[in-house]
Design a protein around this nucleic acid. Structure first.
Lengths: 347, 347
DNA sequence: CTGTTAGCGCTTTCAT
DNA sequence: ATGAAAGCGCTAACAG
């Protein structure tokens, strides 16, 4: 086996036609007589022919292969894994394949990956840039006319389409939810102002309070690491505030879990004694914690949207990105797991 | 820009040499005069040349591209995501790129993916077969001489190298751990005997008990769905057994979490009042639950090993797999997160 | 050490 | 509707 590879010429010979006719069949041209086509397809099957995309791409215009590059910072993070799955769905159904790699938050590695992908002739790239990425890092790619979509993290100064989580919309919805339950002293727990998301998420929180005519009390915005441990710490500090809050919006799900831990340690039941809403960008419903309401971004949906955007650019051949920052999908979910408030936000 | 693509011939012209000399430089041949090489490299930079791997592969022997296909059932499952990351590490450092896709447990989709990957000329494939996959599904691939490594799930009758979790070794270690803590009534919670892993995992549990001279009490092997809810159910039934167990080994981490939920609902503290060990094949240390000891398989390590195995086969050009079922890495971790017992099992 | 000459497997005019 | 011929960008013998 594995003798001299079977090529179009072999199957042409076997079917008693010429290469070009075979090529037409391969491309599904309708201008081949049915009977000839059948004969050719039979030969293809019999000889175990496999199409050589490399050769086809080489000959074809532009030499751009039907592959889409995807670079994420950390595939180990479920958010990105889900994102990749979403991308894969649409990429696959459009007949492309996905080059997926994680750059592990390393800009150098990221550049290597981009280089390697270029050499393989990707038709487009979806990337969640590593921290420290400059817009200029994509200049070479862009000037060679390969469409790029930036996802999750924004990249100031880029001309590429950008797709981000609806941070402000999410915390605003979360806060409104707590207000509707009658809470008035609502804390914001976790994060530090040097994180990009922090400003956006506290922004939505502040907006909702302001809209409800409630003065934002900075004592209730409590900085802490965005981890489970940080959540434990934050709820401790929150409960020590003179005029105690009765509810909290958390920076993310990890913090929210920690807050629940901290509450239980104090014999308080999350949900009943103190309402907690987590911004769920990692774990999603899967590991739903009882008595924890979450606002969630749907990473798969985001992936699907990113891929759709990219394909549109590839097909329209217009490499001008300029697309807007875009919200994706928000779910406010009750402790039971039931979604009580679903909205679609798309720009 | 993006005018007629820059090719070797352009840079040859610019550097005043011939194509072949450029090609030699591209391949890092040492038989080009330093000065010429520099001139060529300068031209490469100036003209923004990008190497066309497709063309190179086409010309080169075998027409096999430097890409490795990876197919998992569900990228959304952290275990597989971690596996993919492990694979990527070694694949990248060997100068290959990874075609990663999820077949979503669908055999048809899986076949499509394999076909697509073949067309792209993958040098090898690492696959976690979808349920219902037949060994014969890989026959075409194998007979074309492309090395295949099967991971995570075993595929009866395949000639390909296979790599699996150390299921029995893991539960055996878990059970031994509980025995060493003085427990004598140890339950096994979760799973049904129609799952492949169930037999292996209960096997290790039974072995450990037997080795300790303890009669296995089938009343303590409790079937339940392998989910969080299943864990809640299982612990309820376990505590209702006449001669109550004092500890449990769980089929997996999801069940273990549910068991902890169930214990807390009964005002029992996991760890202190009832010892729980989870077989942690999904969530790993990241979402460590306080007071839960876990036995874990390191998916990244497994990925690295799978990739190493595959590359060895690719390089040795021997497509005969035949490799053994292999354990990977086990960690028994205390509730604090500290690893108290680490072993390497490699065959 | 460098240039010449042939293709790799496919698509694509252009004839027929 | 089908065939002949040219060539995508690169590498691999050989010559020089």
């Amino acid at each position: 086996m594995a003798e001299g590879r079977v090529t179009v010429i072999d199957i042409a010979r076997a079917a008693g036609v010429s290469k070009s006719t075979v090529s037409l069949v391969l491309q599904g041209s309708s201008s081949v007589k049915e009977e000839t086509r059948n004969r050719i397809n039979a030969a293809i099957r019999d000889l175990g022919y496999v199409y050589n995309r490399g050769a086809a791409t080489l000959r074809q215009t532009g030499s751009r292969s039907k592959i889409i590059g995807v670079i994420v910072n950390d595939l180990t993070n479920s958010f990105f894994a889900e994102l990749a799955v979403g991308i894969d769905m649409v990429v696959q159904s459009a007949g492309y394949v996905q080059f997926l790699s994680s750059c592990a938050e390393n800009p150098d590695r990221q550049q290597e990956l981009i280089g390697s992908m270029r050499e393989h002739g990707i038709s487009g790239l979806i990337i969640c840039p590593a921290r420290g990425t400059q817009a200029s890092d994509f200049k070479a790619l862009e000037s060679s006319g390969i469409p790029v979509v930036v996802a999750v993290r924004n990249l100031p100064g880029t001309k590429a389409s950008t797709l981000m989580s609806a941070n402000a919309v999410g915390t605003r919805a979360a806060t409104q939810h707590l207000l509707s339950l009658g809470h008035r002293r609502i804390a914001f727990l976790g994060g530090f102002s040097d994180m990009a998301v922090f400003d956006e998420r506290t922004g939505g929180y502040r907006d909702a309070l302001r809209e409800a005519g409630i003065q934002v009390d900075d004592e209730l915005v409590i900085n802490a690491p965005s981890s489970r441990a940080g959540g434990v710490e934050a709820i401790g500090r929150a409960l020590a505030v003179a005029e105690r809050p009765t509810a909290a919006v958390c920076l993310n799900d990890a913090v929210a879990f920690g807050v629940c831990d901290g509450l239980r340690a104090r014999r308080l039941e999350p949900g009943a004694d103190f309402a907690v809403v987590g911004f769920d960008d990692v774990i999603e419903a899967k590991t739903a914690v009882p008595a924890l309401t979450t606002v969630s971004v749907d990473p798969q949906g985001m992936g699907r949207r990113a891929a759709t955007l990219l394909l549109k650019q590839i097909n329209s051949n217009s490499s001008e990105g300029e697309a807007v920052t875009t919200a994706v999908r928000l779910v406010v979910r009750e402790s039971s797991g039931k979604a009580i408030n679903v909205r679609q936000e798309m720009a």
